[in-house]
């Protein structure tokens, strides 16, 4: 009997969902997202025998906190990355696509913890209490981080609308 089978079945069933969360958390970079998911699963595997019930919240907590930690570590080099020439803008199919693209790009620019709150609340559909449990913070912090993040997204969205009409 293969002892790793439950773990492998979990990875097969939930790997894609974890990858999508990681992609949103790490700015859309697939290699970074895959590496983070593998890293989180490897950490989770070490404690697999002690996980009771559904392991997904446990793995998600490891993944999100690993991504926040990595994002902060890499922050010191962000200015170098931003010094690269900006990508050429391409004509968009329609305004809605452009506006959603603006929202995603602004989401990727948010501080890691703020971005995590928005991804957990509006992608994972977690409650404020569940989000607080994943991040190890208070519900009040989740509320304030979500509010600040949404304000920034709303501002970017509005600015793009005005620019689109001009």
């Amino acid at each position: 009997m293969n002892d790793d089978r439950p773990f492998e079945e979990f990875v097969a069933a939930r790997g894609s969902a974890l990858l999508r969360t990681a992609l949103l958390m790490c700015g859309g970079s697939r290699p970074d997202a895959e590496d983070a998911v593998q890293g989180a699963l490897e950490k989770a595997y070490r404690h697999w025998g002690r996980v009771e019930g559904d392991p997904e919240p446990f793995v998600r907590r490891i993944l999100v906190n690993l991504l926040i930690s990595r994002a902060r570590r890499w922050k010191v080099l962000r200015e170098v990355q931003m010094a690269e020439p900006p990508e050429q803008s391409v004509p968009a199919a329609d305004d809605t696509v452009v506006l959603r693209d603006v929202l995603i790009r602004e989401l990727y620019r948010l501080p890691p913890r703020q971005r995590a709150v928005l991804v957990l609340r509006f992608w994972e559909d977690l409650s404020e209490a569940e989000t607080a449990a994943v991040l190890g913070c208070s519900v009040g912090t989740v509320k304030s981080q979500a509010s600040r993040g949404l304000v920034r997204l709303r501002e970017a969205h509005s600015a793009q609308r005005i620019e689109g009409k001009a």
């Binding site: 773990f7 492998e8 990875v11 097969a12 790997g15 894609s16 974890l18 990858l19 999508r20 992609l23 949103l24 859309g28 697939r30 895959e34 590496d35 998911v37 593998q38 699963l41 490897e42 595997y45 696509v97 506006l99 959603r100 693209d101 929202l103 995603i104 989401l107 928005l118 991804v119 509006f122 992608w123 949404l150 997204l153 709303r154 969205h157």
Partner: peptide, 28 residues
């Protein structure tokens, strides 16, 4: 804005799937 964000996230990553050798990466 919340609904727009949900839709934007779906557009951005909704079609992404993990590679079949994900578990191999974990073992590595």
């Amino acid at each position: 804005i919340e609904s727009e964000l949900r839709q934007a996230m779906t557009d951005a990553v909704g079609a992404e799937t993990a590679t079949p050798d994900l578990v191999e990466g974990v073992w590595r």
